[in-house]
């Protein structure tokens, strides 16, 4: 069918210094952890994604921003195996991959915290943290090992407000649920962590903790994608920005190329007079 996949050529040269806090490696890295080329996704007549190209480098935080319905969640769901794109290619470490199931994504090393959290209210915190990757001993669930690891992960993330990790998730507050979902993604040793609006439901202090946590992940060399509507958070945590508008990627590059005003302009209109378009705009 298609010819043997070739590693993608970089979309744009990634110029400009990466910010401190990244892996501290060189500024130009052709070996992107993840690259997407020409991604499209249709829901019946709705074109949720059109010809999206993006590169995600390791050890950096890429903020994916855009208005409601711009296609951010749709794009990350293509990475995490919720649905296959209608067209386009995905490259993982330079090799083309087909991520058809969430399991494939997990096996590659991609962990995702979804906007709707995807937790089971009828299970407790430990059971949710380990859902789909339970620790077993002689083929049986090893509850103690999972509970100890959960306690450790939560304390590493300074999540101190839950009374018991054996509490049902259905009884947690919105912020606590968010913390569980983030902890769940962090606990598995992933190379890429995707967070869809991780701070949307959080109070001030927990937001700060999650942002700090995101920087910690990047410092460990993990590639982080964060979707957020909060530009203050974005500018405080991201190394790179990718802006989506009506299903297309209208601009992406190092955060130094943007300021709040230009980001807002890109989000709302899809273009900005102040940022040179880093992509050939969709005609």
């Amino acid at each position: 069918m298609t010819s043997a996949p070739e590693p993608p050529s970089p979309v744009t040269s990634i110029t400009g210094p990466t910010r401190v806090g990244g892996s501290g490696a060189d500024a130009f890295d052709p070996e992107h952890l993840l690259s997407m080329r020409g991604i499209a996704k249709n829901f019946g007549a709705v074109q949720a994604l059109r010809n999206v190209d993006i590169d995600i480098p390791v050890g950096e935080v890429t903020a994916l921003i855009g208005d409601n319905g711009a296609g951010k969640s749709t794009l990350i769901k293509a990475i995490s195996g919720i649905w296959a794109p209608s067209a386009g290619q995905i490259f993982w470490k330079g090799k083309e991959v087909h991520i058809h199931t969430p399991r494939t994504a997990t096996d590659l090393g991609i962990a995702t915290v979804y906007q709707d959290l995807a937790l089971c209210d009828n299970l407790d915190i430990v059971q949710n943290m380990y859902l789909g990757m339970e620790e077993t001993r002689f083929g049986l669930l090893d509850e103690i090992k999972m509970e100890l690891a959960t306690l450790k992960t939560l304390s590493d993330l300074s999540v101190t407000t839950v009374k018991s990790v054996r509490q049902l998730v259905g009884s947690l507050s919105g912020g606590q649920r968010q913390a569980v979902a983030v902890a769940r993604a962090v606990m598995r040793e992933s190379e890429m962590v995707i967070l869809d609006e991780p701070t949307a439901a959080l109070g001030v202090s927990q937001t700060a903790q999650v942002l700090e946590l995101i920087r910690t992940l990047a410092a460990k060399g993990i590639a982080v994608i964060v979707i957020s509507h909060n530009l203050t958070d974005v500018f405080s945590v991201a190394d790179r920005i990718a802006v989506m508008h009506l299903g297309t990627m209208v601009s992406h590059g190092p955060i130094a190329n943007y300021d709040t005003a230009s980001a807002v302009e890109l989000i709302t209109t899809g273009e900005s007079s102040r940022v040179p378009s880093t992509l050939s705009p969709a005609q």
């Binding site: 995490s80 969430p102 669930l141």
Partner: peptide, 25 residues
């Protein structure tokens, strides 16, 4: 139901099928 993965997944599916699916079940 209480000691095996199968049991855990049956509860998870009943609680939130989509969450179970996304968790790779």
């Amino acid at each position: 139901l209480t000691k095996t993965k199968a049991g855990r997944y049956i509860y998870a599916i009943g609680g939130n099928t989509e969450a179970a699916r996304r968790a790779g079940v």
